[in-house]
């Protein structure tokens, strides 16, 4: 069976053969195009990768954190708010599957409303509902049963177990992650297409060179390797430069703790910074396979 990725050959490719390199004349135009295209694609790939990893983190966060917590909202006349809150905490404290339940204090409620009303909102003077944060444990609680108990004992309480709005958020994050990976695939495909076009152009432009090499007894593998090595190294170099620039651009994005939003969280965290190292290798691998396939096809078709 024909090997698509012959590691021995790949090692030879990297080690190089100065003689084989010299037999193919330098082609400045396609060389520059290949390096530029590989660099540009690698730059975009860094962002696609950052997007995929950021959305993966986001989906995990929304999936995990929101799935483990619920909110109870208590609306009651001013004189009954404390009594109803105590009653609700008592119900929650005896419900299996709830690890803890805590009523948010005025400063926490003010912080929640701050994005809309500013920092000086007099929460105490306004008839706003009391919020209770519920942290689940184990398999969680029976939401239907809890709602029935609350309806009987705390008539002003509304339980929000986050499922209604958590699911679309997690779905959106997962879809974004998928789009990120799809972008990476498209980028790899585009690199392959561009390298194939450039390799075909180089092979056609060097038809006379190939004729001479065949006349003196060069095997197709030898001729192909001269082209494959050239395009692989160009792609590797271009992609390495593009990746470095992409990483610098990602590093210069505003930090999460400054903006606080999702878009400002786009980037790499911790060991995820190693992921971009894969991009030049992938680009080199794609170029190797694309050029090898183009060279083999062209040489087979040449008389």
């Amino acid at each position: 069976m024909r090997k698509w990725l012959d590691l021995e050959r790949f090692r030879g490719l990297l080690a190089g053969d100065a003689g084989a390199d010299r037999v193919v004349p330098p082609t400045g135009f396609t060389a520059s195009l290949t390096v530029f295209a590989a660099g540009a694609m690698a730059f975009l790939a860094v962002f696609a990768l950052a997007l995929s990893l950021a959305t993966a983190r986001l989906a995990d966060r929304w999936g995990d954190a929101l799935a483990r917590s619920s909110t109870l909202r208590i609306s009651a006349p001013e004189g009954q708010m404390i009594a109803q809150t105590d009653a609700a905490l008592k119900v929650l404290g005896t419900t299996p599957g709830i690890a803890s339940a805590r009523a948010l204090d005025a400063s926490e409620q003010r912080a929640l409303l701050e994005p809309w009303f500013g920092p000086d909102l007099p929460v105490e003077d306004l008839p706003i509902p009391q919020l209770v944060e519920i942290i689940e444990e184990g398999a969680g609680y029976d939401a239907a049963g809890l709602r029935l108990r609350l309806a009987a004992e705390v008539p002003g309480a509304v339980l929000d177990d986050h499922t209604r709005w958590r699911a679309p958020l997690v779905r959106a994050a997962s879809r974004l992650r998928l789009l990120g990976w799809l972008s990476l695939l498209l980028i790899a495909g585009t690199v392959a297409a561009m390298i194939t076009l450039a390799a075909n152009a180089a092979l056609s432009a060097n038809a006379q060179v190939i004729g001479v090499l065949r006349l003196v007894g060069a095997r197709d593998g030898y001729i192909a390797q001269a082209f494959v090595r050239r395009f692989t190294l160009r792609s590797l170099g271009g992609a390495a430069a593009g990746t470095v620039l992409g990483c610098i651009a990602v590093a210069l994005l505003p930090r999460t703790d400054v903006g606080g939003g999702f878009l400002t969280g786009l980037g790499f965290q911790g060991w995820h910074w190693l992921w971009p190292l894969v991009i030049p290798l992938l680009s080199g691998g794609v170029a190797y396979l694309a050029t090898r396939a183009a060279a083999q096809r062209t040489l087979r078709e040449m008389p």
Binding site: R214, L215, V216, G217, A218, R219, D220, G221
Partner: peptide, 10 residues
């Protein structure tokens, strides 16, 4: 094969 032909040409 094509490689054999190349060797013969040497």
């Amino acid at each position: 094969t094509r490689d054999d032909i190349a060797l013969a040409r040497r």
